[in-house]
């Protein structure tokens, strides 16, 4: 740089405008949940009504949700998913505020483990029920609209909130944000979507993130090569 450091400091301090401070991560988390969760639930319910009314004529989305809210197993699973969303969201929002303790990154471990265990247990039960011939991990494209509908709003609002801060540790923060958005979307999916597609939602989010990450890395490499 041609400018001296003292001159730079002088120019930065000149006519300094006031800034709006970044709110506490808990406040931003509340904003995220309040904005994204209702939209996710609404879109999830609407898409389910549209896509599955022909297949599951006897089961309407809201009836299914009401039923799942009364089952202990479903409630436990929903609690684990919601806790994963909240803790991962909090940790991700802490990650864009430099100087905050990185201990928050550990918060989602417990609820996420519980969620994964429940997914594993469901898979195992299904495997025992239908046998190895019928069991497959192939993506069901009929679930795709529901996955997009429930996951889009949490991901979008999270990106907007993250962009307000500074990505001090991009990989961890983006990973936590993806987990949070997936989990919040999974709540709606678990409530309104008849089959258990939460594992598929996690998979889609992971693939989408890795794809975007790959493009970003490629773009960054190209930029530095031709800069």
């Amino acid at each position: 740089m041609n400018i001296s450091t003292n001159d730079l400091i002088a120019s930065l301090s000149e006519d300094l405008p006031p800034v709006q401070r970044l709110a506490h991560p808990a406040k931003r988390l509340a904003k995220w949940v309040l904005l994204a969760f209702p939209v996710s639930l609404l879109l999830g319910a609407l898409v389910e009504q549209q896509s599955f009314s022909l297949v599951f004529v006897e089961r309407q989305s809201f009836a299914l949700a009401a039923e799942r809210l009364t089952e202990t197993r479903s409630l436990l699973e929903l609690a684990a998913i919601l806790m994963t969303a909240l803790t991962a969201g909090y940790a991700a929002l802490c990650g864009v505020q430099p100087g905050r303790s990185t201990k928050a990154w550990m918060l989602p471990i417990l609820p996420f483990t519980a969620w994964l265990l429940m997914i594993g247990e469901s898979c195992f039960a299904l495997f025992q029920q239908i046998g190895p011939e019928q069991f497959s991990f192939a993506p069901h494209w009929t679930c795709y609209p529901s996955v997009v509908a429930t996951g889009a709003a949490p991901a979008l609002v999270m990106v907007i909130l993250l962009k307000r801060g500074m990505l001090a540790s991009p990989t961890v923060t983006v990973g936590l944000a993806v987990l949070a958005a997936s989990a919040l979307g999974a709540v709606g999916l678990r409530l309104f979507h008849p089959p258990d597609a939460t594992a598929m939602l996690l998979m889609w989010q992971l693939i989408a993130t890795l794809t975007l990450y790959g493009f970003a890395t490629l773009g960054s490499a190209m930029k530095s090569r031709f800069a």
């Binding site: 800034v19 864009v96 100087g99 905050r100 500074m166 001090a168």
Partner: peptide, 22 residues
């Protein structure tokens, strides 16, 4: 550019160190 991310209730040094290291 990121001065809005500083929370005055927290110590300043870790905030600055994180940005500098990054």
């Amino acid at each position: 550019k990121n001065r809005h991310t500083y929370d005055p209730s927290l110590p300043f040094r870790p905030w600055l160190s994180t940005i500098t290291q990054r």
